[in-house]
Simulated assay, not measured.
Amino acid sequence: MAYLSISGVRKTYGSPRGPVTALKGIDLEVNEGEFVSILGPSGCGKSTLLKCIAGLEDASAGKIAVDGRALKGPPQNMGIVFQRDVLLDWRTILDNVLITAEFAGLKGPAVRERALALLGRFGLGGFENRHPWELSGGMRQRAAICRALLCDPKLLLMDEPFGALDAMTRDDLNLELARIWQDTRKTVVFVTHGITEAIFLSDRVVMMDRNPGRIVEIIDIDLPRPRHLAMRESAEFGRYVAHVRHLFASLGVLKDDAP
């Protein structure tokens, strides 16, 4: 049985001009410990699908189950990282990370030590008493990831968490996320519009198109782990990139300049 099961999901919004279908006929199964990226252009419903998985929005039709249980609100044992860090400026970085434990009713030295260890792992050691407005965008997003990981969630949902970061910071966080996954084997659903990022991180890449949002192909990424940035220069990696670009070009999402 898949850890995450999505069957026949449709999401429709009302509008002054009538209903708008954001998602249609979404079928997807994610195994426990698998890293799956959802890849597609803006407006294809990637974030909407993630919100439905997180129980933040209800599907208009279809079923979603997590760990064999039909979804009714946010699933237990879930961590989520949004596009924006959503840190509270009046709390220190450490206190922002500890919010997750507060909501779960956890406290004590062990929780604090875990928070400090995560901050150290993500390069934020020594910044725990700073406030968000004192940190760069990349550092803030690192803190947001620490917050999501604090209670050791079994399911980690990430909605384009690195989209607003510079290329070097993004590469650094891709590597750290890959190491975290390698160490913990959490079930990860990662939304991105970056082709290289999706291939580098994932066991499978779910490709979506828009109008309405739908899955057009699921690609198994058969690349060895652990993965290093130099792998992106390999011929095998390049073939995955070319395949994705060609498919998106055939859908009119990308221009294909090949003869």
Rank of each mutant, 00 (worst) to 15 (best):
V191W: 06
F237G: 02
T192W: 02
A2Y: 01
S60W: 10
V111F: 04
G33M: 01
V189G: 04
L247I: 15
C151Y: 09
G126N: 06
G68A: 04
D58T: 15
N174R: 04
V188E: 02
E113L: 03
P224N: 02
L28C: 08
T92G: 14
P226W: 05
D171Q: 06
I219A: 05
V111D: 01
L50A: 05
N31G: 11
G18C: 15
G8T: 14
S37T: 04
H246I: 13
F122N: 03
R69T: 14
R214S: 13
D85M: 00
R245K: 14
L254G: 07
G238N: 05
G25Y: 13
G14Q: 15
M1I: 11
N174S: 07
F122H: 04
F103K: 13
V205S: 03
A144K: 00
T196C: 06
I221R: 01
K107Y: 13
G252P: 03
A115R: 00
L106Y: 06
M207I: 04
H193C: 07
S60I: 10
V66Q: 07
G40T: 01
R84H: 06
T184E: 12
G252L: 06
E160T: 10
G73P: 11
T184V: 10
F248C: 03
S7V: 15
I93R: 01
F237P: 06
P161N: 09
H246C: 14
M168C: 03
K63Y: 13
L4T: 13
E34C: 07
T21M: 15
G33R: 00
N96P: 06
S234W: 07
L177Q: 02
A65F: 06
A59H: 05
A144C: 05
P161T: 12
G125V: 08
S5R: 11
E57V: 14
G45T: 07
A230T: 02
L49N: 08
A59Q: 12
L247F: 08
I195T: 06
Q76L: 10
G163P: 02
I80W: 13
A54D: 03
I218W: 01
I195N: 03
F82S: 09
